[in-house]
Design a protein around this nucleic acid. Sequence first.
DNA 1: AAAACAGCCGTTTTT
DNA 2: CGGCTGTTTT
Length: 655
Amino acid sequence: MEGLNPSQERAVKHFGKPLLIIAGAGSGKTKTLAHKVEFLIREKGIAPERLLAITFTNKAGKEIRDRVKRVAGVDLPWAGTFHSVALRLLRAKGKQVGISTNFSILSEGDRNQIIKKLSQSINTKPETLKNYLSERFENLREPYDEKLEYALQEYLKALKSMNLLDFSTLMLYTRELLLKNQSIRENFDFVLVDEFQDTNTVQYEILKLLARENVCVVGDPNQCIYEWRYARPDNILRFKEDFNPDVIKLEYNYRSRPYIIHIANAVLSASNAEWKSLIPTLRPVKEGGQKPTVRRFEREEEEAVWIATKVKELLQSYKPHQIAILVRVGYITEPFERALAGMRILYKIVGAIRFFERAEIKDVLSFFRVLTNPYDAVSFSRALEVATRGIGEKTLEHILQAGRGNCLAGSQAILKSLPQAKAVELYGFLQKLSRLYKRLEDYPQAIEDFLREIDFWDYLRESYKDAEEREENVKELLRYLRQKHSEGYRLVDVLEEVDFLTEREEEEGAVKISTIHASKGLEFDVVFLPRLEEGILPHEKAKESQEEMEEELRLFYVAITRAKELLFMTYTRNSKPSRFLSLIPKELLDLSAFAKKKTTYMPELKSLKDFKVGDRVLHEIFGEGVILAIEDSKALVEFKAGRKSIHTAFLKPVV
DNA sequence: AAAACAGCCGTTTTT
DNA sequence: CGGCTGTTTT
Ligand SMILES: Nc1ncnc2c1ncn2[C@@H]1O[C@H](COP(=O)(O)OP(=O)(O)OP(=O)(O)O)[C@@H](O)[C@H]1O
């Protein structure tokens, strides 16, 4: 088995019992999983169509499919996210749980609209209802509030009447289906789950209903960064109890240079997570490398220009797509865009406002959606707004009533009872829609003509200030449709892809600007981490709870461990430097920029925990000890091995 | 009843 | 800056 170390090889060849692979970043988890898929197919005779491989993103799913195709020459139809797998199951067997199988997916934005309306009707904040839905659907909590439960039931009814499913009801009904029809599990001979730390409760229950002995899950709880979305990193602990798996740990990091790994370990040592003892500390395989740099700037423009200059310089030795600027929040990217553009450096933003969530894109797609699912009132409303004048909320209500939810039938039905002007307008629109419908075979051309018929381009110019950019986006969408069409995609396939796809294909020749979240599982030669400031990382909103602060720390860990060769960490004086920076021992950093300016490394910051003189503490290497004195953030500790002065971040309280 | 407009808010992370 | 709300105009 070439290219694998002994532990990885053991994991690949393991068979006959549940397996848990638990390991830190860059230890080859994904690689091992990919090899395991091939091993199962080639050596164990598992039929590819009976192998379920669950990934965190659809992109990762596609990578596995492509790889299996390349290496083993077979298709792997069941590789994808929980959601895409759920979609396929419900399309095939949704009837068994009362779902009509031509349902469409409710987008995030439209979902929020519905939630907002419902929350108004029960006098709560949308946020409260949204959390309630998550508690009930993702976390499988029992009903615990009468009013909210009422709204939830209304929500379910609304979706049902529109023949729509959102991301959480997709999980909900899938679980229901699997509970009802246990034989579905017989369709799969092996189940694998990557990024297991970011699965939530309902997904775990789904896994339990799909898998028995032939199951392998792979994860790193320290890389759980979706707890805010009800991911449960402790599913790993539950898996250990429920499945009694063999456990294989991987400790060698093949990705990063040693300094980077030591920094990542130092950051992690401040975590108080319950699973800490389970995960081996990362050990570098690579050698050499440069110390990661920390720099401070007055303003974000200055920081951006410095980074852009550095990028320019590094482009001599690194490929553009091997350089990434990773940010905590999307809205701080403008200075970097400006600075990079100013230096004629091509860049690509990922994880920003997603292409298919843009208003103008949804405008165009709404016409298709109405035609494939005439009960989709959300899309119909949007379509009316774009293509007609004088037909609004009230008329739509009448339409829905007349058609008992079917927008197209309802429209036909009320034509007679409408004032003439409105009737003419609506009739004209229905005519155009019907012409579009008849030409759906060639949907790219049909929609292009349709858009012209409804004067869509004028509509764009009138409705939006930044019309040019939006025109560009629509043209991009048309190009995308033409490409899909030429690849043999039917319209329904395209709409399905769009529901889950967040990004258009990425360009090879561009530097990446991405959120840290969206960079999960990726790696880059060069990583810049700007704006490492209090309020940004850790984010202001996370400071209220210990759990969220832990997640912020993990986010920093994930960010650091994306880097293979070079890592640059910077902050501006808009705020105090991130407390997480002070977790890193100075010896691991290149701080030369500070030496010149005679500034101290960083202001003293409180560590995540408070210690007093006399506290018993634990250190990873020196063991247990007692604090003799505390100075700033360092503590003088008496260990068996002697007295040491240690940053409190590396100490854990002994209880 | 629908559209246009003006002034307000507050900015996480996304399958 | 963008999205929402309440108000005014058609
Ligand atoms: N045995 C090995 N020999 C050489 N290179 C390896 C080996 N195992 C993994 N690698 C390389 O190490 C890098 C990290 O691997 P991979 O992405 O699979 O790690 P991971 O554990 O999934 O990381 P993360 O948790 O950050 O997603 C990849 O470039 C991979 O090719």
